[in-house]
Amino acid sequence: MMPLRGADEAPVTLTHCVYTPAAIEATIRAFHELCEVEAEIEEQYTHLRFHLKTDCPSTVCDDFLNYALELSAQELLSKE
């Protein structure tokens, strides 16, 4: 297991009207080898704090957000 680099990324808040909790959870699972993510749900928002692992790419957080957005879009648009 890769050691953690620390919580060196700014916290990110995701709104549930765009990012579904299921998509956020699935993304956390998908990225668990690159970073550990603390998620705190508060009403219609999820606050994320990233703990990057050493040797992980610097774009992990951005990749995480794109991945979560893609999963959310698939989930929300398939309900139509």
Binding site: C17, V18, L69, E70, S72, A73, Q74, L76, L77, E80
Partner: peptide, 9 residues
């Protein structure tokens, strides 16, 4: 929202 999501995807 759907148009925004569809485009963003």
């Amino acid at each position: 929202r759907d148009a925004v999501l569809r485009t963003a995807y």
